[in-house]
């Protein structure tokens, strides 16, 4: 076992941290130029063929920087789905455009009143030479900016995945923002697509597998956020004076910060434990990912909320950075299953 990063990974982490500190992380094109959009894509399609460890390293930095771009949704989830389910020349063409940042894809999986159920109520029916898709999809991150949606629909008793142009007639989107001000949309679909838009008639395992990669990235993103919130808090307490002394001189506050570290450090271990599971069998991987999710998101609100608390009122303002980690925790926690969902999945596994 070796817990040290190799030289490429160190470079990835350091350059990401530098770039995000300077540029703020709100440029998809910037991500493309840095090669980040190709990490999850295989080398035979022009990607970097990176592993889970590389993705997690970058995701942690993006979380630390509160980057608003949908890296996990586009560059991980959608990219892994296309890699797994699109075949032939089309796969390379699509991935090429995604890696270059010229085409944005996002997955439209969840439906109203169905929480995290992946078996869709959206239906696909053969219609002339193509398919007619009908249904509603919600909480589609990056939905307003994406060029195409990867839509799950029930077809012949299986779960099919379709590639649907967002601007196509019959794709009725409503954009909004999440509590942490990320872009999102719901879609009502009543659209006919050509036959070749069906990517797979049996996509459920591929969707779960890609979701697990996205889930672990989201955990890493949150870990970066927690780490940063703790560091900011320690720094703030060293500069703020009340009662004629630095707040950091009060042992009660030192111990509160130490408690946050204890929680976040446990999350880091869950993450590192889950990464090698991606080289193994599916059941063990699912269990490890769910374990990491539960530990991460049962911890995240407390750690980031306490970071706000320890700042006092300044931490409660939007002008100040630390509270934005708490907002992000509230949203990320429920994007790909929540704590109870993953606890149940862990227990079932």
């Amino acid at each position: 076992m070796d817990f040290t990063l190799n030289s490429e990974q160190t470079m990835l982490r350091d350059s990401a941290r530098r770039y995000l500190a300077q540029a703020g992380g709100a440029s998809w094109q910037g991500y493309a130029e840095l090669g980040w959009l190709g990490i999850a894509a295989p080398e035979d399609a022009g990607g970097l063929g990176g592993g889970m460890a590389d993705l997690a390293i970058l995701a942690e930095e993006l979380g630390r920087a509160l980057a608003p771009e949908p890296f996990v949704d586009g560059a991980v989830l959608a990219t892994r789905l296309v890699d797994r389910l699109v075949v032939g020349h089309r796969r390379e063409a699509l991935l090429g455009e995604m890696i270059a940042g010229t085409r944005r894809l996002t997955a439209a999986l969840y439906e109203p009143g169905r929480r995290y159920e992946l078996a869709p109520q959206t239906t696909a029916v053969r219609d002339g030479g193509g398919y007619r898709l009908s249904g509603t999809k919600v909480l589609v991150m990056d939905g307003a900016a994406a060029d195409d949606l990867l839509v799950t629909a029930a077809l012949d008793g299986g779960v099919a995945l379709f590639l649907v142009g967002r601007e196509q007639a019959g794709v009725d989107g409503r954009a909004y923002r999440t509590v942490d001000r990320r872009d999102c949309a719901d879609f009502r679909l009543d659209v006919t697509v050509e036959a070749d838009r069906l990517l797979s008639g049996d996509a459920l395992d591929a969707v779960e597998d890609a979701l697990d990669e996205a889930r672990l990235c989201l955990c890493a993103d949150m870990l970066g956020g927690m780490d940063s919130a703790i560091e900011m808090t320690a720094e703030y307490l060293k500069t703020r004076t009340q009662f004629g002394q630095k707040l950091a001189s009060f042992q009660a506050l030192q111990h509160s910060v130490a408690d946050l570290f204890i929680d976040a450090d446990s999350v880091r271990s869950s993450l590192l434990r889950a990464i090698p599971a991606f080289g193994g069998e599916r059941a063990a991987r699912r269990k490890a990912v769910s374990a990491c999710w539960v530990n991460t998101f049962e911890t995240a609100k407390r750690v980031t909320g306490m970071a706000v608390h320890l700042h006092g009122a300044i931490g409660f303002t939007t002008e100040y950075r630390v509270g934005h980690y708490l907002r992000r925790a509230i949203v990320s926690e429920r994007l790909f299953g929540d704590v109870e969902f993953h606890l149940a999945r862990y227990m079932a596994g």
Binding site: T136, Y176, V179, V339
Partner: peptide, 26 residues
């Protein structure tokens, strides 16, 4: 926190009564 957990993904949209926009469909 319990209320947010019960509502699950439905609490993710930002919403203000003054916005004049209804909550997302779901």
């Amino acid at each position: 926190d319990l209320e947010m957990a019960i509502l699950g993904p439905q609490v993710a949209p930002a919403f203000r009564p003054e916005d004049g926009v209804p909550l997302p469909a779901f």
